[in-house]
Simulated scan of single mutants.
Amino acid sequence: MKQQSKLWMSIVAAVALLSACSEQTTAPVEQPIANKEQTKEQTPVDFTLVESTNQPFSISLLPKFSLEAEEPRKDVVMHESEQEQWMRIELLPKDASNEMETYAKERATAISEQAILFEGTLPFENAIAYEAHVDDSVVYVIGVTEDAPMFLTVFTKKEENWLDTFMTMAKTIERKKTETNEQTKEQFFTYKSSNQPFQANILNGYMAEAIEPGKDMIFLDEEKASLTVELIDEGADWSLVAEQAEQYVKASSKDGHVEKITWTKGAHLNGSDVYKSAIEDGEVYVFVVKNEPAMRLTIFIQQPNELDAFLQMAETIERID
């Protein structure tokens, strides 16, 4: 009897053990992960659809980002507080896809000779990208070679890299049917100086001409509002250039007061030392630009709203040695 009882207890124990093993094997261990992924996918992204007034496209922007026209055929996406991190958008003609790799490499190596191919992931089926490291920053030059080719240039930081954030917005870019050239032909003309080795896009209504050796002027009325361009050669004494700029502004000032600021807007002019002062009928600004092409820009304006147009044209200046 005792042996039958022991046998019965052994059978019950074995059944219980098998049952426990069965429950452990069939437990839905993947379910919590699936739920997390599903929750993530269902979280709405707070985009704002914005249309460019400068190029024929629209883009959806994340909160605290804005779209601004930088110059003809170029827009920038900027954050309201992190202005050192931004993305330039440049639509291109359809035939540009054929030379995209060459263009992208040239642009990247102009930023840094050590630029390398970007091996990360981009939200485009066909794109070529390079990355260039400059001090504590990274610049990504991305040539998209799909049906609507474009250049995307992302300026971000090594320690706080926002490439993915900008790509999240870039993948929403939708190009309108209007060709880029059709929209921009009426906005500007390209001025090639016969006096200095540079060219610039000049807004319609403005004029440009050489006024003396080493100086070209862009103006609506040279007696009222104007921009004078002086290229500065490599190896210049920057302390002397700065001293001359300050002295010039002081001499033009109505009260001898000169304000010095560091410019934080745009792409090429960003980081320039600026000397400014009030004059009898407006304001004078002298920009000392150390970025390539290095130059000194002297701007006279009578109304505050005249400055933006000159800065927009100044951003397009390119050396053509």
Score class of each variant (00 low, 15 high):
residue 2 K to F: 12
residue 11 I to F: 14
residue 13 A to F: 07
residue 17 L to D: 08
residue 25 T to G: 11
residue 29 V to M: 11
residue 29 V to C: 07
residue 30 E to T: 11
residue 32 P to D: 09
residue 35 N to V: 06
residue 38 Q to M: 14
residue 39 T to M: 13
residue 44 P to Y: 07
residue 48 T to Q: 15
residue 48 T to V: 15
residue 51 E to Q: 08
residue 54 N to S: 05
residue 54 N to K: 02
residue 55 Q to T: 13
residue 62 L to W: 01
residue 68 E to F: 04
residue 76 V to I: 12
residue 79 H to P: 03
residue 79 H to M: 02
residue 80 E to Y: 03
residue 81 S to P: 02
residue 84 E to M: 02
residue 84 E to D: 08
residue 85 Q to F: 00
residue 91 L to M: 15
residue 98 N to Q: 09
residue 99 E to V: 09
residue 108 A to D: 09
residue 108 A to R: 04
residue 109 T to Q: 14
residue 112 S to K: 05
residue 113 E to M: 15
residue 113 E to P: 05
residue 114 Q to T: 06
residue 118 F to H: 02
residue 118 F to S: 00
residue 123 P to Y: 05
residue 125 E to K: 14
residue 130 Y to D: 05
residue 132 A to M: 12
residue 134 V to H: 11
residue 135 D to Y: 10
residue 135 D to N: 13
residue 143 G to Y: 00
residue 148 A to G: 05
residue 152 L to P: 03
residue 155 F to K: 00
residue 155 F to Y: 09
residue 157 K to L: 12
residue 164 D to F: 04
residue 165 T to V: 08
residue 165 T to F: 00
residue 166 F to A: 09
residue 167 M to E: 06
residue 168 T to V: 05
residue 178 T to C: 10
residue 180 T to Y: 08
residue 184 T to Y: 04
residue 189 F to Q: 09
residue 191 Y to L: 07
residue 196 Q to M: 11
residue 196 Q to R: 08
residue 198 F to M: 06
residue 203 L to W: 01
residue 203 L to N: 03
residue 204 N to G: 06
residue 206 Y to G: 00
residue 206 Y to K: 03
residue 210 A to P: 13
residue 211 I to V: 15
residue 211 I to H: 06
residue 217 M to N: 03
residue 225 A to C: 09
residue 229 V to R: 00
residue 234 E to G: 08
residue 238 W to E: 12
residue 240 L to S: 11
residue 242 A to H: 08
residue 248 Y to K: 14
residue 259 E to L: 12
residue 260 K to M: 08
residue 269 L to M: 10
residue 270 N to Q: 08
residue 272 S to M: 10
residue 274 V to Y: 06
residue 274 V to M: 11
residue 276 K to G: 06
residue 279 I to H: 09
residue 279 I to T: 13
residue 280 E to F: 12
residue 283 E to I: 01
residue 295 M to A: 12
residue 297 L to I: 02
residue 298 T to V: 06
residue 299 I to M: 02
residue 300 F to R: 01
residue 303 Q to A: 11
residue 305 N to K: 07
residue 309 A to H: 04
residue 309 A to N: 06
residue 309 A to I: 05
residue 312 Q to F: 07
residue 312 Q to G: 03
residue 317 I to F: 03
